[in-house]
Amino acid sequence: MMAKRSTLWLTIIGLLIGLLILMVLSISLGSAQISFTTVWRVILSHVPVMGEWIERDWPDSTATIVLDLRMPRILLASVVGAALALAGALYQGVLRNPLADPFILGVSSGASFGAAMTFVFGIQMVWIGQMTLPVVAFICGFATLMVVYSIARIGQKVRMETIILAGVVVQAFLGACLSLVMSLANEKLQTIVFWMMGSLTLTDWSYNAVVLPVIALTAIVAMMFTRELNMLGLGEEVAHHSGVSVERTRFILLILASLMTGAAVAVSGAIGFVGLVVPHMIRLIVGSDYRMILPLSIIGGALFLVGADTLARVSLAPRELPLGVITAFLGAPFFIYLLRQAKREYF
């Protein structure tokens, strides 16, 4: 037990170092190649105290590319990846369904519909300016979850099979609404389609500033429920008799997962595969203990999406590929490989 805990921490620290290296590497790659060490020095020169020792011998344009163009985007990729993977793990744990992903309860459909409406009608709220799109998307996503939840609720209880069905139905309905909006959209069609495929192209620091606190906070709260998730795994009744307040725990976790998903989708569109595949990969490697699955999903999701976004940027440069395509191309084969390797039922 103690040994397990220290192994977990070592793994987490190792993976975080790996993530940091990958992020810096990703910053150095692109149409303007910047050396790995220069990236480090540009970033470190902004760290208090340490910054005074570093001689600023790079052109201003390099600093701009590193700090204002690539860094916010890569940071956002890691945050969105972490949020989607964690949300996926939570949905899978709460719904007890291996097919669950962050989009299963319609959060992304709602958000996409909201985003499409924003594009088509050119809605712009003065006081939040360019934040209108993510804010509308987020609100629509969350409202969708509330609708799904209230459809599935019978008296005080919500059955997990029912909520999945309700989610599927609402998702299909919103999909139809979205198609309708798109068919009427004419010249905005391309913008909507591009947004729906998921992209981090339009990122600047303000997106990070809005999304990071939401996701960090929800993730921290969610991490406090690992024990309850494990007990739900042993069966609803068992959890109930062990003192878990099953309905409340599920409700809180679904809300948290949906807040994360909504925030992530609002700034980056519906990036598929991360939330489905990353938690499964973690589960296949470390087993079904949520004390390990949750923290490792966070880091795994960040690693996965930073890697995928880097490939999306550089593989066919100067052309940029849709991020959703890369996540599927990377995720599917690796997942199939792991699935074939797994010797027993693992979910």
């Binding site: 037990m1 024990r227 795994g233 042993l234 069966g235 068992v238 062990s242 087993g287 079904s288 039922e345």
Partner: peptide
């Protein structure tokens, strides 16, 4: 108990939860 991939030790430890 559901045949969940959890160790005997961790499962028994859940009894301490309340």
């Amino acid at each position: 108990l559901a045949p969940y991939p959890m160790t005997v030790y961790d499962t028994v430890m859940m009894g301490r939860y309340p």
